[in-house]
Design a protein around this nucleic acid. Sequence first.
RNA 1: AGACCCAUGGUGUAACGGUAGCACAUCGGUUUUUGGUGCCGCUAGUCAAGGUUCGAAUCCUUGUGGGUCUGCCA
Length: 556
Amino acid sequence: MSEKESVNFIEQIIQNDLAEGKFPDGIKTRFPPEPNGYLHIGHAKSIVLNFGLTQMYKGTTNLRFDDTNPETESTEYVNSIKRDIRWLGYDWEDREYYTSDYFDQLYDFALKLIKEGLAYVDDSDSETILEQKGTVTVPGTESTFRSRSVEENLDLFEGMKKGEFEEGSRVLRAKIDMASPNMHMRDPVIYRIKRMAHHRTGNKWNIYPMYDFAHGQSDSIEEITHSLCTLEFENHRPLYNWLIEKLEIYPSRQIEFARLNLNYTVMSKRKLMQLVEKGVVSGWDDPRMPTISGMRNRGYTPAAIRLFCEKVGIAKRENVIDMSLLEFCVREDLNRVAERRMAVLNPVKLIIENYDEHKEEMLPAINNPEDEAAGEREMPFCRELYVERDDFMEDPPKKFFRLAPGRNVRLKHAFIIHCTGFERDENGELVEIRAEYYPDSRSGSDTSGIKAKGTLHWVSARHADNAVVHMYDRLFKVPEPLADKEVDFLEHVNEDSLEVVKGVKIEPSLTESEALKPFQFLRKGYFVRAENSDGDLPTFNMTVGLRDSWGGKNKK
RNA sequence: AGACCCAUGGUGUAACGGUAGCACAUCGGUUUUUGGUGCCGCUAGUCAAGGUUCGAAUCCUUGUGGGUCUGCCA
């Protein structure tokens, strides 16, 4: 797939493990989302890592829903997550697991701890537990319930399970060390009472395990060899290892890497949720969102996202990736696969004065210069066309290669024309450009010997259809919306991130195009037809613009 | 400031005691019937101070800077 010989630190660990013969049956990883939100590009990094590793080094990757909190989880999220992973191009085959499938086993693990005097039921309320926890510099104090007998603990825990106690009245805690410098070792809560239905187990349970008592053991149950997670779980690792040791279960190895951050956007589920709830965007799948579903609607391809995830690398350093890298990856893929079409976003009429008013001809146009197999289509040509308003200047600078009085320009796949005049209305607004064409300059059979510096895209005025285009800009005005903790990130929202362009003229072949199929609108950018049109007209979302060395230069 | 983690061009990421490389971005050139694509090139980096060593981005010490941790969230 790539020419790289350098491997990231996780691959190095795996290579070493394999060299030592530790995993003769192959390695096992897992992708463990909580079904309480939509997947975003940060999750994609983890998905590509976990599935990529087992493709590369022979192994399997499980999909496991970490559904230990019935309050926030639902099957709606389960389904969207599965759809997104499949769309990205990964297959977990029959290995679709749920932490809730392990509730019985986890309960038995808790029993084992209690029996060995390593867990106890605490009747303290949450405020008391918090107070007794101490701080990072002050050791905690032991709960008065810490020394309960095994029998009493067993009895009370059973009562918790049976629903005999109110929510919040008791918890089960591991008995570790209230003076540990690691806060996670100060007798962490491992079970809490929640008398509510779970999206999979229904009303079976009145108690649910905490993440810290479920995640690591779920890895062990599945015999995950390398359990990859983000940096913030580094401090939890000693607890997981303690549980593995005391429970005498499969020793999955946790390795932490830095999560993905992208500039000009936010990545946490909570923050994304706020954007949705405040109506800043139209939903989780708004094309401006860094969610997988948003990016899909924007026209990003799975291959582009995978490429991006490979290019960002895996390391332990906090990072903020440049949006330009994502855009590069998108163009890289789309340039190869997107068929070319012509659309005029800001049209102005162009009259070919010496072209017969009643004549029409069909001109062949290649669909993709990067892919011979994409074939060609025909475009109607006649006396009246539309071209881009920006492609004309009355008094242009010398480096302007487009239309101006007296200048020649090539109409892509058609003829070279000579600009003979133009018309403005009373407001000075350009309303019409006039030109003459050179009949012997037809593309593919040009014998005119005439040169033209620039090439323009166009559509036939008589045949063009109307469309709407959604242009997108970055969601935030600053590279790191979360950087200043004094300022609410919502204040950095770019209110011009969506521009609805009406009056767009598209070539006829675009009228019946299918949703989400990528196109390059020549000289403009990559677009996909939206699944839901804006009114009656076909609507196209801009995925990303073409690189523009003229526009940039011109601005400076 | 208790513990743990991290520190290489603007942004990412390699170099495993022996020539600091790659990608994106930037800038310049070239090709081109897309001012796209392709191709070529420039600019620019080891947080600091000590130590070990023939030799340190790499090992040690200290400092500095950044991150994580005190939910019955995950």
